[in-house]
């Protein structure tokens, strides 16, 4: 086997690829949020942000392809690791307690929040992506406004942001630990950052639909 491929068949190799793709998504989340915050500059700022983004042309396509490839890797490895880990404990404990307080709700629900995020991403792209939704007759603000006027969809979006936040809360520090970046000097900061960034994601993205509805 080629040595590079062999790395990614080991437990640590698979996890490090999970971590790197995860870090990429965190970076994407940060830029996506920063861009979308332009809504607070009013309708005009928001629309012009979307137009500038699409004007990137080929550069944007490269970024999109990169994210899709990373997503496929992240999902494939998640499925493999999930089933390997279930196989590693064929008989469950009768009493299964975290008495010492190691695991968190967020760490325990990673596979499930991950699955829900995938469902959300598909829905989100189907309702917003300029590749799928025709944006010649309606601008992005109108599309968003119509969508969020539907109470069900609004609640779905808000709930999805909480799910993303839960995934981020364990994923961020966990990615650093997996690539080997755990140091007494900065690990406490990274652990805090996980929680703070999770809150920023939930509140930041969660406020966008409400801002859009309020702006009309």
């Amino acid at each position: 086997m080629i040595w590079v491929v062999r790395i990614f068949t080991t437990s640590i190799g698979k996890k490090q690829l999970m971590a790197l793709t995860g870090l990429l998504f965190l970076l994407f989340l940060a830029t996506h949020l920063l861009g979308n915050l332009s809504i607070y500059g009013g309708q005009g700022a928001f629309i012009s942000y979307a137009e500038h983004l699409h004007a990137l042309g080929k550069l944007l396509v490269v970024a999109e392809v990169g994210l899709v490839v990373a997503l496929l890797i992240h999902i494939t490895l998640a499925v493999i690791l999930f089933f390997e880990n279930r196989k590693a404990r064929p008989i469950q404990y009768a009493v299964d307690k975290s008495g010492g307080g190691g695991r968190t709700f967020s760490s325990q629900t990673m596979p499930y929040t991950g699955f829900l995020i995938l469902a959300f991403v598909i829905f989100h792209l189907a309702t917003f992506s300029h590749h799928i939704v025709d944006q010649t007759h309606r601008n992005i603000f109108q599309i968003a406004y119509e969508l969020f006027s539907n109470k069900g969809i609004l609640i779905f979006y808000l709930a999805a942001m909480v799910v993303v936040a839960l995934h981020v809360r364990h994923g961020l520090w966990s990615a650093f630990q997996t690539i080997g970046a755990n140091h007494p000097k900065y690990m406490p900061f990274i652990e805090w950052l996980s929680i703070i960034f999770a809150i920023i994601v939930a509140v930041g993205f969660g406020s966008l639909p409400l801002a859009i509805l309020a702006l009309k």
Partner: peptide, 30 residues
Amino acid sequence: GNCTNHKECEVECPKGISIRNIARLNREFI
């Protein structure tokens, strides 16, 4: 199984071995 950083090992280890060792192994390995 594959470690997913639950930290359960660290809190149950009778010798207080830290998960910083796991980060070191991850570094050493790659």
